[in-house]
Design a protein around this nucleic acid. Structure first.
Ligand SMILES: [Zn+2]
Ligand SMILES: [Zn+2]
Ligand SMILES: [Zn+2]
Ligand SMILES: [Zn+2]
Lengths: 157, 157
DNA sequence: ACTCTTGTTGATAATAAAAATCAAATAAGA
DNA sequence: TCTTATTTGATTTTTATTATCAACAAGAGT
């Protein structure tokens, strides 16, 4: 798969080193499409073949991957962040999530409308929609201006 | 406003008492439409007129309000839950949020499309969309069945 | 208004996710 | 290989949220 090449490239572009720990975490997430792992869950999988890797490193790595656009951070209101690979080679594949308020099961939806989507989902997945949430992440006009003016003292967050 | 009457009714229907603490928290949220307060922020406002009310009560009350549908819990990935009044008398008013990834500012969007919405937002708000998240909350087919069969031993979560 | 019962509260301790610390280890370029 | 800035593992710290529990108060019935 070429995901790995893109991953290495993104790391490099951002000025980060390719370490064993980062490669291993990347592989765990990449090998589990459709899953939405928490840091602890990823840590448990990583430990099997690499017991020397620490939990703190998993947290750090996930934060870094999110920052450089390798993964998405998801929130299902279950007390922790969850992560999935971002579709590096096809950004249009961004999918939506169905969260069961009873059993917590998470289903993925591969289409991108909303009005149609709701009725489609209710029928096709036999899912009773109680609520939905839509968020946009981006830059407001103020920050676009500010970002253009002062590109100098850009330090890490 | 009739919000308060609906609030009292919902509390009553669910078998909860109307306490001073609950009334005060309700008033703080109701008097701040367009805001998205964290528990701590609500606590700070509540304290001004009611220093006897404790933080734990604010957390408990918010959780209760969410459960009976008085408020929505929002997540902007800033380390805490945030809350806003649900539109009790007009459910169709559910709005969407613009979250600036730089300054954290939150803007509200009052329309309900998505494809049109994206281009509308980019122009009208001069906002660069980097990402969006859509979640549906509801019941999957399995749980609908299960819920129909065993409505007996329904205890609190 | 008084009582009784049960839900509720305030103060505090307990949890748990995530971040910070820091000496030791290591990737990557010369 | 050597150098050096980056990264890591183990651990502690931080902080949002929940649990605990005795004291308290809402609301139904008298
Ligand atoms: Zn997904
Ligand atoms: Zn379910
Ligand atoms: Zn809002
Ligand atoms: Zn901004």
């Amino acid at each position: 798969m070429k995901f790995y090449e893109i991953f290495k490239q993104k790391l490099n572009e951002a000025g980060y080193k390719l370490t064993t720990q980062r490669r291993v975490v990347f592989e765990v997430i990449g090998a589990n499409e459709g899953k939405h792992f928490s840091p602890e869950e990823i840590y448990d999988i990583v430990k099997v073949d690499h017991p020397e890797i620490g939990l703190a490193t998993v947290y750090r790595t996930l934060k870094l991957f999110e920052k450089i656009g390798i993964i998405y951070r998801l929130n299902f209101n279950d007390g922790c962040s969850r992560f999935e690979m971002s579709h590096l080679d096809d950004e249009s594949h961004r999918h939506h999530h169905l969260v069961c308020i009873e059993c917590g099961k998470i289903l993925e939806v591969k289409i991108d409308s909303l009005q149609e989507l709701e009725s489609y989902v209710e029928k096709e997945y036999s899912f009773d929609i109680h609520n939905h949430t839509l968020k946009f992440f981006g830059l407001c006009s103020d920050c676009k201006k500010r970002r253009n003016k002062c590109k100098k003292e850009s330090t890490e967050s």
